[in-house]
Amino acid sequence: MATDASVPAFDAKRMPAPFRPFFLIAGLDAIVGAAVWLPSVLRIQGIGPTGISRGDWHRDVLLFGMVPAILTGFLLTALPRWTGRRAVSPITTRLLVALWLCSRGTFLFLSHSAGLALSALLVLTLLLIAAGQVIASRDRRNLKILFLLLVFCGGNVLAAASYQVEFALRLALASIIGLVMIIGGRVVPALTVAYVESAGGRVTLDRSAVLEYTAAVVAACGFGMWIVAPQAQLTGIACALAACSQAMRAAQWNGWRSVASSTVLALHIGYGWIIVGFGLLATHIFAPASLGQAAAVHAWTIGAIGTMALAIMASMIRKHSRRAFAPSVPATSAFIAITICCLSRLLVELLPGYVAPLTGLSGTLWVGAFGLFLVAFRRILISQI
């Protein structure tokens, strides 16, 4: 695989980085989706803004709206650097943005199922573009990304068809967390080393190949068993082992060295929510009366996906603006807000008598976190779109 030095960098004047429009619309979608859903939560109504249930509304906005936008922006920007291939053209980027907008417009105003089907089409298109780059470069390391994109697309299709919906959602969520684990495993340690060295320090991460492989296999087993047998005792054992192996993996990255950088610290915290999610899921399986499955799901969706999305978007924006570790009060506030957002949502499972205020607080903080993100990076995201 080509090194970074041999990969054509984005020329901001001739070819704007694809992340700009996608990170912008992802942030707006995250805000609008929660803001529209939030009043129904506070009134404890059962129907969402398009006639579907509240749970279906905010679940589908997150998994099949915001996430595909972030994935598309990130992968279209990162894959050329990973594979040594040329960047996608601005026309391709604009067409994908148009497809995403059609998906969301259809979802909001015409048909829930048709909107999800268009979202699946976007993911399939991204998969084909990524496959072209990976296969042409013979980059076998990224074949697992193609596989997980295919699985996510399959979950999206099943959800659009309203077929085996719970199975489809587990399939989609597991594939997204798998992608977060792969991307996080590359981005988090690399940025940790870069930050420590930029601050004048030195750090060498002692990463065990055996541990990396073992953690990946155990997590895959845990997810696979959860998808097909979500309440089985063996699934609980696999998830407990996955939590332990992922904790050992993350411990190699020396997260404590990054406490002075909010973005790098947020990456470590975001990855930590994956570990928490596995632990909570194992707890639910072994003691279902004391803890619901929603705790693990929200640790993964709000904690891991929400936090990692904000931190990875922020780090990519800063890298391409050549301000890798520049401090930002709005960005730091966004990371704090998303962390409290996740904690308040998890408290709902422990304090069922306070569902409305805690859920309302969590939704408000989610809106605030992505709003602060857009405030922090609005000029970079809006320019040259």
Score class of each variant (00 low, 15 high):
58 H>D: 00
24 L>P: 05
341 C>D: 14
301 T>I: 15
154 G>V: 06
303 G>Q: 11
39 P>Q: 13
307 T>H: 00
71 L>F: 10
254 N>F: 10
324 A>E: 13
96 L>G: 09
115 G>K: 06
223 F>H: 14
38 L>K: 09
242 A>Y: 01
355 V>L: 06
207 R>F: 04
349 E>Y: 10
272 G>S: 11
172 A>R: 06
46 G>K: 05
368 G>V: 15
166 E>T: 14
300 W>K: 00
339 T>Y: 03
186 R>K: 07
29 D>G: 13
333 S>Q: 08
352 P>F: 11
164 Q>D: 13
44 I>D: 04
380 I>G: 01
192 T>K: 03
368 G>R: 03
267 L>E: 12
178 G>F: 02
22 F>M: 03
259 V>G: 06
182 I>Y: 06
44 I>W: 06
373 F>Y: 13
221 C>S: 12
190 A>P: 01
224 G>W: 10
41 V>M: 10
343 L>H: 03
240 A>E: 00
325 F>G: 09
32 V>H: 02
359 T>V: 15
291 L>K: 10
348 V>F: 06
98 A>S: 13
172 A>D: 03
350 L>M: 10
329 V>D: 09
185 G>W: 08
79 L>D: 09
9 A>K: 12
38 L>A: 12
136 A>I: 15
267 L>F: 02
255 G>Y: 12
82 W>S: 07
215 A>E: 13
143 L>H: 06
301 T>F: 00
201 G>T: 14
192 T>V: 02
56 D>E: 14
4 D>H: 11
78 A>H: 06
146 L>I: 14
131 A>Q: 11
